[in-house]
Design a protein around this nucleic acid. Structure first.
Lengths: 216, 216
DNA sequence: GTCTATATTGCGATAGAC
DNA sequence: GTCTATCGCAATATAGAC
């Protein structure tokens, strides 16, 4: 697992079917509230109302507000990891980039709440994920950058392209469709983005990045 | 002005030198707190402490917390507008893109707080900027997209590139260096980004986008 | 214009009956 | 395992002396 839970997120160790079901109801409600209002902005009251449970019930399942928040973050990172880390550092940069961009855009379309919670946490300076960014993430990032660097050494990517900044570009451009969909919808004059919009996004992005990096 | 103030942000209409000075002190303090904690998360107490003024003083100058927040947002949009709208829809897409990317990256480096407040507001669905995104922004965006479309019609940009999604790419990739500097610093193993990092970002970005769009 | 003291609300959290 | 009632505190906001 990429992100270790704080040992004290849960009010009680584990549990049976009822616990699992209620915990997942609470987590889903919390995800919505945290995405809309951030950690401090979300209230246990609103989460309880959305979960259709009394407030005390949430405190029975999670130690406190921070514990609930950390649990939501952990779920998100696990999901992220399982979606995007199946990509292997194979030989063909073209295939890797196509797969990555398409999966990430699809992830943005299907899990916008997760992306937004993550983004808000990051913009605030990631106060609750310091260890993750200090340890696991730095390692993960270095591994990826090295693959791009190796490709550049083999002449498969233009030497003008900084591997690090290419990764940032891949991340930001795809993430944008989840985090800033309000802005995108306003720009396109739509109430909600459609499947075709995401496909346009992916194909334009891939055209620019593949050609722009000189990837054959 | 792009963004109309809610008529009731100020506690009192206008004012002299003392008022102007104190208002700007309060606005600067508020910018830091809102960037760190979001609208709900920031407290008038913390803002007052940072401004080195008693809490009641802030309520004397601004009607309430929301009024102060709207005032901060207005300042940000004005700054944005004056920095980026000096760019004219001239004939040469290459020059326009180079100027835009460099200015926006520079803006991210010098005004990270403004970018972050704006980003958090957007991620939350822009509850306090609905009118802006409904009216001014949609118009501004259409104007920009039309310029890119004209260039494409003249063969100056690859036809595979969607003008709309190119603009999103320009926005997101540059914005990223302000909003997600925590992630970038962790990835690069630095405590703070340096001038050289922003230059690397701009040159990699421009290489990929110009070449990727087939702009000569 | 400034600032202390306070009114009032809403929050996270818990006790304790069921 | 569930839920009502409540505690204690921190928040926004204001009254009113200076």
């Amino acid at each position: 697992m990429l992100f270790k839970l704080d040992p004290d997120t849960k009010a009680r160790p584990v549990g049976g079917r009822i616990r699992q079901k209620n915990e997942s109801i609470i987590l889903r409600a919390a995800e919505i509230e945290f995405a809309n209002s951030g950690f401090k902005g979300a209230s246990m009251n609103d989460i309880a109302q959305r979960a259709d449970l009394p407030k005390a019930n949430i405190h029975y399942y999670f130690k406190n507000k921070l514990g609930l928040y950390i649990a939501v973050l952990s779920d998100i990172i696990e999901l992220w990891d399982s979606t995007l880390n199946a990509i292997t550092p194979e030989d063909n940069p073209r295939d890797v980039l196509i797969t990555y961009v398409q999966r990430k855009i699809e992830f943005s379309a299907q899990n916008p709440l997760a992306s937004r919670i993550f983004a808000k946490e990051l913009i605030s300076g990631a106060p609750n994920m310091k260890e993750y960014f200090r340890d696991d993430y730095a390692l993960w990032f270095k591994g990826r950058a090295d693959i791009f660097r190796a490709w550049a050494a083999q002449g498969k990517i233009d030497p003008e392209v900084s591997p690090e900044h290419l990764i940032f570009l891949l991340w930001s451009a795809t993430q944008h469709y989840a985090d800033f969909s309000t802005q995108i919808e306003a720009a396109l004059g739509k109430d909600q983005l459609e499947e075709a919009d995401y496909q346009d996004a992916a194909s334009t992005l891939l055209h620019i990045i593949l050609k722009g990096c000189g990837i054959k």
